[in-house]
C-alpha cells in the first residue's frame, strides 16, 4: 500500500460512493423539509410573491455582500462579516473557477468553462483559509457563539478546512509529496461529501430555498425583504 494506491482508492471507488451518499442524503433532507408541511395562509396577497423572492435573492447574493455597510450586522461586527463573506466568495472561486476543479465538473457534467489564472485562484484560496481561521478563533472567544457551538460546529469547520489546506499545500508542493497531499485532499473531500447531508453545511442548498420562501412571504405582504 503506497500513496498511489490510496489516491486511486480516494479518486475512484470511494469518491463514487461518497457522491452517491451525497446525492441520496440531499434528496432525503429536501423531501423531509418539504413534508414538514406548508403554512396555511388564507390572507389575500397584497404584493407579488415572485417579485419578493427575486428581491430577496438580489439583496442576499448581489447587494449585501458588496455594499455591506448598510447592514446592521456589518456595523456591529465587521471582521466576522467580512471573514464570512470572503470565505464563501473564496470557496466559490476555488471550486468553480479553479482549473483543477473545473475538470472535475467537466468529467461529471460533460461540459467545462473558462477558468481564472492560478495566481488569482491561489490568492482566493489563501484568503479563504485565513477567513476560516478567523471564524474559528471567533467561535473560540465570542461568548454567545461559545454557548451555541457544539461538536457538530467544530466538525463542520474542520471538515471544510482540511480539503482547503491540503489543496493549497499540494498546489505549492509544501512539505509532503504531491501524491500524498493529493490523496489526503481526495480523502477529505470524500468525507466532506458524506458529511454535508448530515450537517448544516447543507445550507449550500437550503439557503436558496429559505431565501425564496422568506422573500415570497415578504412579497405577499408587500413588505421590503
Amino acid at each position: 500500500m503506497n500513496w498511489t494506491d490510496v489516491l486511486a482508492f480516494a479518486r475512484g471507488p470511494l469518491f463514487q460512493v461518497a457522491l452517491l451518499v451525497f446525492i441520496a442524503g440531499m434528496a432525503y433532507r429536501l423531501v423531509r423539509v418539504i413534508f414538514l408541511g406548508w403554512q396555511v395562509d388564507k390572507v389575500p396577497a397584497r404584493g407579488s410573491k415572485v417579485g419578493g423572492a427575486a428581491i430577496s435573492f438580489l439583496k442576499g447574493i448581489l447587494i449585501w455582500p458588496f455594499v455591506p455597510w448598510v447592514k446592521n450586522t456589518f456595523k456591529k461586527n465587521p471582521v466576522i462579516y467580512l471573514a464570512g463573506g470572503l470565505f464563501h466568495l473564496g470557496l466559490f472561486v476555488v471550486l468553480v473557477l479553479g482549473t483543477a476543479h473545473m475538470l472535475v465538473w467537466k468529467s461529471l457534467l460533460g461540459f467545462g468553462w473558462k477558468t481564472l489564472p492560478l495566481p488569482i485562484v491561489d490568492w482566493m484560496a489563501a484568503v479563504t483559509i485565513v477567513a476560516m481561521i478567523t471564524l474559528f478563533i471567533n467561535r473560540l472567544i465570542n461568548p454567545v457563539l461559545k454557548l451555541i457551538t457544539g461538536p457538530a460546529e467544530w466538525a463542520n469547520l474542520a471538515i471544510v478546512f482540511v480539503p482547503m489546506v491540503t489543496g493549497y499545500m499540494m498546489t505549492h508542493h509544501l512539505w509532503f509529496r504531491y501524491e500524498a497531499l493529493f490523496s489526503l485532499h481526495m480523502l477529505a473531500v470524500d468525507v466532506l461529501l458524506i458529511w454535508i447531508p448530515l450537517s448544516r453545511i447543507s445550507h449550500f442548498m437550503f439557503y436558496f430555498f429559505s431565501k425564496a420562501i422568506h422573500g415570497a412571504d415578504f412579497g405577499k405582504r408587500a413588505v421590503e425583504p
Partner: peptide
C-alpha cells in the same frame, strides 16, 4: 482526461437511483 478528474464516477442511472432512493426514504 485531466488529472484532477475522478477515476470513477456514478452513472446517470446510479445517480438517479440514489436521488430516488433518498427521496423515497425521506417520504
Amino acid at each position: 482526461q485531466g488529472q484532477s478528474a475522478p477515476l470513477d464516477k456514478p452513472t446517470v442511472l446510479a445517480a438517479g437511483a440514489a436521488l430516488a432512493g433518498g427521496a423515497v426514504v425521506g417520504v
